[in-house]
């Protein structure tokens, strides 16, 4: 499944970049963010080899997929909170933070695209309990 592979790989690259850029920041929100980012990249690392196999069943990769999506959901919330914190504390990193938010939004778009592909392949009933509904196509 090259398309899915490419999407998850790009998400992983995004997560690594955000992790690199934020790791020196000193705030509890960033501590949370880093733990989640690391978990997400780890799970994608486990997922990618499975996606190389065209015949992979959802049951064989649903745990990794679910964690990747749920992590992304948390990242969104923690990252936006941290951005507000940067703004309120007039932190010079704010501009860079805004840039990283764009990257995070791209990751989310890719995950939405991957969700659509997964739903096409395995069917809604199968992915319903794996992918949070906010990532699935909004109209059906």
């Amino acid at each position: 499944m090259p398309e899915l592979y490419a999407l998850f790989e790009a998400v992983s690259e995004g997560a690594r970049k955000i992790e690199r850029e934020t790791r020196s920041a000193d705030n509890p929100l960033v501590t949370l963010l880093l733990v989640v980012l690391r978990e997400q990249t780890q799970q994608i690392e486990r997922l990618l080899p499975k996606l190389r196999d065209e015949r992979v069943e959802l049951a064989d990769c649903k745990k990794e997929i679910a964690i990747v999506y749920n992590d992304d959901d948390l990242l969104d919330s923690y990252f936006r909170s941290w951005l507000r914190h940067l703004k309120w504390s007039e932190d010079p990193f704010e501009a860079e933070g805004e840039h990283l938010l764009t990257l995070l939004e791209e990751m989310k778009s890719r995950l939405k695209e991957a969700a659509r592909l997964l739903e096409d392949r395995y069917g809604y009933d199968a992915v319903k309990y794996v992918i949070p509904s906010f990532y699935l196509p909004i109209l059906r």
Partner: peptide, 29 residues
């Protein structure tokens, strides 16, 4: 710590099976 929902498989691995769960309580200021 992070609030990420566990999957069914992860929860099953805990094998709580009717026992209460003691969690680590890491501090986040």
């Amino acid at each position: 710590f992070t609030g990420r929902p566990l999957t069914e498989a992860e929860y099953a691995e805990l094998k709580a099976d009717g026992r209460a769960i003691l969690h680590p309580t890491r501090y986040s200021p």
